[in-house]
Computed example of a mutant assay.
Amino acid sequence: MSINAITNLIRKGNYNKINAKLAFYQWGEENGKKKMHWCSWKKMTQQKDREGLGFKELQSFNRVLLGKQVWRMVTTPNSLVSKVLKAKYYPHESIFRCKIKQNSSWIWQSLMGARDLVEKGTYRKIGNGKSTKIWEDKWIPGNS
């Protein structure tokens, strides 16, 4: 089992607990008995324009926020966080090609778990072409 699979299992259990607390808060209890659940949690987490209630599904929301941090590291490589993480985890390669080490920190493993979200929507701008690996980098939209 990979590092990401293990951390996802742990996090999924925590998310289920948090979602249960949110659902309990929403529906509550009366005289020690739980109130009726009038709609499913899945319906509650759908967007309002899709006839849901707009609650955040925490696991997906967390992945999006982690993906946003990866995007910031890609677009602002001169920030302190980007420089520190690059020096420690991927000093000689792209963030999209680096390997996840067994002794990586929990936050780095989490960021790498969201890296594929960013990579799917990212294409390389060629520029002068010196740092582009034409057979490995995603640089033509629509091509794998």
Score class of each variant (00 low, 15 high):
Ala5Phe: 06
Asn128Ala: 04
Lys48Pro: 05
Trp135Leu: 08
Asn16Cys: 07
Lys88Cys: 00
Gly52Met: 09
Gly129Leu: 07
Leu58Ser: 05
Tyr89Cys: 02
Tyr89Asp: 00
Glu57Val: 05
Asn128Pro: 02
Ala5Glu: 09
Asn62Ala: 13
Lys56Thr: 03
Met36Leu: 11
Thr122Glu: 02
Tyr15Pro: 00
Ala5Asn: 12
Leu58His: 03
Thr75Cys: 12
Lys48Gly: 10
Ser105Ile: 11
Lys48Ala: 04
Lys138Met: 07
Glu30Met: 02
Gly129Cys: 03
Lys101Thr: 10
Glu57Thr: 01
Leu111Gln: 00
Pro77Glu: 04
Gly13Val: 03
Pro91Gln: 06
Gln69Glu: 15
Lys125Gln: 08
Thr76Cys: 10
Ala114His: 00
Arg63Met: 12
Thr122Leu: 01
Lys99Phe: 01
Ser79Ala: 11
Asn143Met: 11
Arg11Leu: 09
Lys33Pro: 00
Met1Tyr: 07
Leu111Trp: 01
Leu53Asn: 07
Gln102Lys: 13
Tyr25Gln: 10
Trp108Phe: 13
Lys101Phe: 00
Leu65Asn: 14
Ser110Arg: 05
Lys99Ala: 06
Lys86Gln: 15
Phe61Asp: 09
Pro91Gly: 07
Glu30Val: 06
Glu29Arg: 13
Asn8Cys: 06
Ser79Leu: 04
Gln26Val: 10
Ser144Arg: 12
Lys12Asp: 01
Val74Met: 06
Glu29Pro: 00
Leu65Ala: 12
Lys34Asn: 09
Lys99Asn: 14
Arg11Asp: 00
Gln102Arg: 12
Leu65Phe: 14
Gly67Asp: 02
Arg50Gln: 13
Asn128Tyr: 07
Arg124Pro: 00
Phe96Leu: 07
Lys125Cys: 06
Val84Phe: 03
Arg50Phe: 05
Gly142Gln: 08
Lys56Arg: 15
Val84Thr: 06
Arg63Gly: 09
Gln69Gly: 01
Ala114Pro: 02
Asp49Cys: 13
Ile126Arg: 14
Pro141Lys: 14
Ile18Arg: 09
Trp41Leu: 13
Lys34Ser: 06
His37Asn: 06
Trp135Gln: 01
Gly121Trp: 10
Ser79His: 06
His92Gly: 02
Met44Lys: 12
Lys130Asp: 10
Gln59Lys: 10
Thr45Trp: 08
